[in-house]
Amino acid sequence: MNRRIIAIVSVCLLAGCGQKADLKPLAGQTLPPAPLGSDVQPSSADLLELDTQAEPERNVELRRRSESREDDPFDLPPE
């Protein structure tokens, strides 16, 4: 029982000690090369930003209540 409590407390303490500093490459390492056709080397902050395809904005409004469907000319029965 005591070991479980110690383990839970240890995990909680470990989870709360995250680093808040900027990311930098390790000593002797460099960032990836610049993309093909680009003259500018992206920084670590630039590399961590999500692409618009990875996190698209929602551009449709959700339906709040059921609505009747429009007739679909391509919804044909099987032959």
Rank of each mutant, 00 (worst) to 15 (best):
R3M: 05
R3P: 00
R4F: 10
R4A: 07
I6G: 03
A7C: 09
A7F: 14
S10P: 00
S10F: 15
V11R: 05
C12I: 13
L13V: 08
L13D: 00
L14N: 11
A15D: 01
G16H: 00
G16F: 05
C17V: 12
G18T: 06
Q19R: 10
K20N: 07
A21Q: 08
D22Y: 02
L23W: 11
L23R: 05
K24D: 00
P25L: 07
L26E: 08
A27V: 12
A27G: 05
A27F: 10
G28T: 05
G28C: 04
G28S: 06
Q29C: 14
Q29W: 13
Q29Y: 14
T30G: 00
P32Q: 02
P33A: 12
A34H: 02
A34S: 13
P35R: 09
L36H: 04
L36V: 08
G37E: 02
D39Y: 06
Q41L: 15
Q41K: 12
P42Y: 02
P42H: 03
P42C: 03
S43G: 13
A45P: 00
L47G: 05
L47I: 15
L48Q: 14
L48R: 15
E49N: 11
E49C: 02
E49H: 07
L50H: 14
T52F: 10
T52G: 03
T52Y: 08
Q53P: 00
A54R: 04
E57Q: 08
E57S: 06
R58G: 08
R58D: 14
R58L: 11
R58W: 10
V60W: 12
V60T: 14
R63P: 00
R63D: 08
R64H: 04
R64A: 07
R64T: 12
R65Q: 12
S66D: 15
E67W: 10
E67T: 15
S68C: 01
E70A: 15
D72R: 05
F74Y: 15
F74K: 11
D75I: 02
L76G: 00
P77G: 02
P77E: 04
P77H: 01
P77N: 03
E79R: 15
